[in-house]
Every structure is written in C-alpha cells, then in structure tokens.
Amino acid sequence: MATKGRLFAGCTVALATPFRDGQVDYDALKRLVEWQIARGTAVLSPCGTTGESPTLSHEEHEKVIAVVVETTAGRAKVLAGTGSNATSEAISLTKFAQRVGADGTLQVTPYYNRPTQEGMYAHFARIAEVCDLPMMLYNIPSRCGRNLEPETVARLAELPQVVAIKEASGSLDQVSELVRSTNLTVVSGDDSLTLPMLAVGGEGVVSVVANLAPQRVQAMIDAFQQGQLAEARAIHQELFTLSRNLLGLSVNPVPVKAALEELGLCSSEVRLPLTGLTPPQRDQLRKALAEARIQA
C-alpha cells in the first residue's frame, strides 16, 4: 500500500542545539540551519534528543523551534520535537509549533512514567485530536523504558495526523512488521541501521551523523532507492565507521557537538548532567573527522 507522510522520507537531520555560557546560542543555531540548507538538507528536526530537549526550558524549547522555522523560511521542512511524558505539555508545544509554521512534529514515547500500550495510544490520540500537524511517532525503548508495539502503532496509523514513525528499537523484525501492517513512512532512529531498514521497507532516517555529513547520508538513501546497492553499502560502511569512531565516544549529543566545534560551527558546550569529551577523547574525535574527510 502507498505510504503517507512521504514528506519525511529521506534524510532528516536531528539538529543540535548550540549553547554558549549556559544560554542557547541562537546565532549559532541559525548558522547550523544555513549550513544544512546549503548542503541540500530537506528536513530539519530541532528539539529532539540531539537537541538536548530534556534540559531546555519551555520558553527555550519554543524559541528554538520558532528560530529554526524562521531561518529555514520554507527552504526546508521543519519536524519539531514537541513530545513529552506529560500529554498536556506535548499538546502545548505542538500547538505552538503549529502556530509558528512547523511542517510536522516528532512525538516521543512517554518516558519515565512507563505507560501501558493503551496509555500510549491515548496519549498520541489526544495530541492528534487537538492538533492538526502531521505527526511522526518516535519509538526508542532504551531511553523511554517502554516499547511502542506494532499493534499499537497500527491503531495509531488510522489517525490522519499520524503519518510516520521513527523506529529505534533496534529490531528489524519490528520494522518489518510496521511496514507490513501500516501505511506509515517508517524511518530509522539509528544511523547504523539505516541501510538495513531500507532493505526491509524503511524510507529514511532521522540522523545524528547528518549534522556532519548530510550529503553522504542522503546519497546512501538515493543509491539504495536507485538500485545501486554496492554504492549504498560503500557509503554505509563509511558512515558506520564514522558513527562508531566518533559518535561512540560518549552519549549523544556530546561527540557531535564537539565535532561541530571542530568545524567552527558552534560551541561544544552541553548542559549538565551531560559533560564534555576528555582531552584523549577529543584527540580521537579529530582523528575520526580527518579519516572521514569531514570539513566545514
């Protein structure tokens, strides 16, 4: 069956949020957006995990979304992270994203309070009931403590606002079941699994490594879709090595922000409880960037 939510197929960049002296650096945020657009990025996703949304105040969260929408000025789609483990907060953020012109919202599975499948269905359905923006569900059990089961996703897929899912369970069986049982656009939430997911019916990725190499990520997807499997595998191996050597140094987004600093795009500053790379890790990062030929 034809999938819905095709505007979120391909490479979506899970955008980092720059900080300086404890505050959001909005000038640097605009630079990141312009850098991505100059490289052909079609979709930007602010205020996700890579954007350190758990440590953004409500006011900062809204302003980051607004600045990204304003800066893109229609040159790229904006998939705003507006999820929360409080349904009322997710609704408030989603309504704001809709008012300022975002193209869709990324809605993470409620974390910490560990709702049942029925509770998760009711959570997402309530957001869809009061907000018209297209919604991408985000399943990441390792961070949220609950797996959004395919049967629940199939129920949610009947809602017109639910158009896609970012799947980060690590299970290709689950991806296959989502592709089989729903008409959602299924995208990877793990850079290392993008190509395997494409092979079983996925249509893209919400990518961390694309903060540094957006053209390569999109090129891999394009090569696969054009039947150029050897080319797709070669790019996958490059990106896999980069992800392991660089992003594996610490928890996301610590390494990617350090890499962005090496490229002169923003500070590597993160907010507690995250901490920056150690000097030896920074040396490893520089080596990984050089080997991957990443440059501004």
Rank of each mutant, 00 (worst) to 15 (best):
P54C: 02
D132A: 12
M220P: 10
V217F: 11
S192P: 11
V270A: 01
S188N: 13
R143T: 02
L56K: 02
L239F: 00
Y111F: 05
V186D: 02
S268Y: 09
L193S: 14
Q284I: 06
M120V: 11
R75C: 09
K287Q: 10
F96V: 07
D27E: 15
A122F: 06
N245M: 11
A2D: 14
T87G: 02
G189C: 12
E129I: 05
S188F: 08
R31L: 10
G101S: 10
G101H: 12
K95D: 11
K257Y: 06
G201R: 07
R146K: 12
G227Q: 08
K63Q: 11
M197G: 01
Q228S: 15
P110R: 00
P141S: 09
M136V: 10
Q107C: 03
C144M: 12
P141W: 06
Q228P: 07
T278I: 06
K287P: 10
A80N: 03
V217Q: 14
E262F: 08
Q228K: 14
I165T: 04
S53T: 01
A157H: 07
I127K: 00
T50Y: 05
T278F: 08
S53W: 03
E269M: 06
E291A: 15
R155N: 05
L246K: 05
G204S: 03
A234H: 07
G5T: 08
A234R: 11
A199P: 09
V187K: 04
V24I: 14
A42N: 14
E52F: 05
V206N: 08
L263R: 14
V217G: 13
I235P: 04
T152V: 13
H61E: 04
S268C: 14
I140E: 03
A90M: 00
C144A: 08
L156G: 03
Q281S: 12
G48W: 00
L159Y: 03
V208P: 05
V187L: 06
G10C: 13
S57C: 12
R99L: 15
V78P: 01
H123G: 06
F224Y: 15
P141K: 11
R293M: 13
P46R: 03
A128T: 07
A28M: 09
Y121A: 09
P273N: 00
L106R: 06
